[in-house]
Design a protein around this nucleic acid. Sequence first.
DNA 1: ACCCCGTTTTGAACACGTTCAAGAAAGTGC
DNA 2: GCACTTTCTTGAACGTGTTCAAAACGGGGT
Lengths: 221, 221
Amino acid sequence: MAAKSEQTRQLVADVALKLFREIGFEKTTMRAIAQEAGVSVGNAYYYFASKDELVQELYIQVQDEHAVVAAQALENVQDLAGRLKAVLHTGIDVMTPYHQFGSDFIATAIRPTSPVNPFGEASTAARDASLAIFRSAVEGSSPSVAKKLRDDLPELLWLAYMGVALYWVYDKSEGQRRTRRLIDGAAPLMARGLSLAKIPGVSKVFDDVLGLVRSVKEDPK
Amino acid sequence: MAAKSEQTRQLVADVALKLFREIGFEKTTMRAIAQEAGVSVGNAYYYFASKDELVQELYIQVQDEHAVVAAQALENVQDLAGRLKAVLHTGIDVMTPYHQFGSDFIATAIRPTSPVNPFGEASTAARDASLAIFRSAVEGSSPSVAKKLRDDLPELLWLAYMGVALYWVYDKSEGQRRTRRLIDGAAPLMARGLSLAKIPGVSKVFDDVLGLVRSVKEDPK
DNA sequence: ACCCCGTTTTGAACACGTTCAAGAAAGTGC
DNA sequence: GCACTTTCTTGAACGTGTTCAAAACGGGGT
């Protein structure tokens, strides 16, 4: 019965995520997870090669939830600024239960060897899912975004999202409302900045920026 | 004799930094440092409360060196793009011996509790030193930067520098030449972008960006 | 029933960062 | 020189993430 095995795996993952939320990353020891799940330490390792992989589990789950919630929030919004806000706010929403744990997450995620590294191999799927959210935010907006920007913009917005997430991690204000303000301020500004691409003198700078971004992307070698 | 104590401290720090360079962060265990330095583990901890504090030692040293080298590189360069290049390139220069160790450093640095966190309390001195480098790059440039930008620009450039450093950490190209290309491409673009601030339609967007940046800075509460 | 073999589970063991009670050395006042 | 204090040094011990040889389980084949 493959179901039994899967059941243990899920149990361990669920307990781990629960403990992450309740007592934070550091205090959630592998021993604590095992005990709370009623299995041995070694057994947890049979399903997750490292504590980091449990973080990956969390990452995927949060990402999935973001996709759902963002799609919903995008339904009745047309303008780019509003759509950006929707995606960014929902992004923060789904992460909120893990806020205290955010810095540990980022410290884990930032290692190139980590399965959770957002730029890395192992999280291609999660990153693509996240990118898709931003692509839909861009493509569904009206008035529409300048053609020449449309391809690269989602990736840049995703990068900005990483920045917002970083800001959020450090945000000690009550309910992280500073981050909310940042989003509310930055989203319209980005939309407005992009609309400047039409101005002749500015257009060339935009082209060069895009050229640089392309040349600098992680491509083969 | 206070010198004896200081000598031990230096010895431990020197050995630690040497090992960081030679065998990387993870493989440099506290036991290895102690053994190589000919002291006990506990003794190393008498001078450095944690492995992180040894990283801080490295951070300070690299920062100091950057200040010296950057000042020198700025001597004969007038235009902003060139000055930016100088500061960024020298920044990468001084970090280069530690490249393989970069991701561990960042993972350490990014925790709010870390003494090396660039946004944190404990590294105010180092950050201010770094900010001063960028301020001098901005202030010494001719043609000069628009007045309204002059105050906030150094901080924004420093932030961009953090981004470049992050890119560099992930840069697996030979000698990290992709990062060099990024700097060479981005510096003139930033300078050119800033010159757009004079265009009427653009000016307002700049003002709003600056306003947002100010409102969002880590100020009291 | 029995054995076989792949999957799952166990718990002891390892190396690590870190702590700490205890002792050695160095300094200070007399 | 001697007691006393402060500074420095030691190494064993703790809790952590992780590994691994061995055991238990499960389900086909005979």
